[in-house]
Design a binder for these strands. Structure first.
Lengths: 135, 135
DNA sequence: CTACTTGCAAACTCTTTGCACCATA
DNA sequence: TATGGTGCAAAGAGTTTGCAAGTAG
């Protein structure tokens, strides 16, 4: 865990709250700020929701977590340490499917070559309808 | 304009507010609810913001507008009559680039073939960094 | 006329911020 | 012990809803 080093090298401090938030996101895989808070409450005394927001922002700045938008509402965070993946969200049933970024590499290459756009694959979410819901 | 027919066939009524909201979205190309309201205020007396929300929801149900998320905050609506397109959003500068859906057809086909997922191209937004910001 | 719509205001959700107190280094 | 961090409460965006008054058909 290099959380401590990353924090210290920028003058930030290591606190139990910061460890907990990162652990929550890592364990949950996908977590909204509210999800992370719930996870933390189940095992320790709890952390204030505003601290969760501040910490997620900080962890993202440090490159330890990333976020996407899997629904209309809250953003969803996941650990940057997790293998990078693309999200498919089925609108009818709400299911979230993760895929290897390989499936979008043709698209990424096209965007780079045609318009010089560097796509952020880890942030990509494709909405649509899954196989079951299409029947 | 088949707004009137579409509304009537489902028992809804044609009102000046509904015409204005659809016209706002069509003219602006991309519009948040707040943007649409601003456009309407510039030419007529104005419409209440809650009517804008209700109307956008209705127009989407009727298939006349669609929405995407181009930023963290408000959703962005565009007329369904406009040619379908994919959005690229440059995070550093905020610029929005529109591309023909052709560029993502390889991806759409892959998703369909591999996992049976029917991607909604009109709703797709790719975040990343544009050519200028990459220099 | 009647049912659908609108405007208004209040309520709600999600997120941010100011500030006094607390804790890491 | 000196900052930086946290909790709390209040303030802000964005959005939804209940209800009385207005209006399209």
């Amino acid at each position: 865990m290099d959380l401590h080093q990353r924090l210290r090298s920028r003058g930030y401090r290591l606190t139990p709250q910061r460890e907990l938030v990162l652990e929550a996101v890592s364990s949950l895989g996908h977590a909204t700020p509210e999800d992370a808070l719930g996870w933390i409450r189940e095992r320790s005394g709890g952390v204030n929701i505003s601290t969760v927001y501040r910490t997620l922002e900080l962890l993202e700045e440090l490159g330890l977590v990333k976020h996407t938008h899997l629904s209309h509402g809250a953003p969803t965070y996941h650990a940057a340490a997790a293998p990078e993946h693309v999200h498919l969200v089925c609108r009818p049933c709400g299911k979230v499917i993760e895929l290897e970024p390989r499936v979008v590499s043709p698209l990424v290459d096209t965007l780079q070559d045609d318009v010089g756009f560097a796509a952020d694959v880890g942030h990509l979410t494709v909405f649509g309808q899954c196989a079951e819901c299409s029947r």
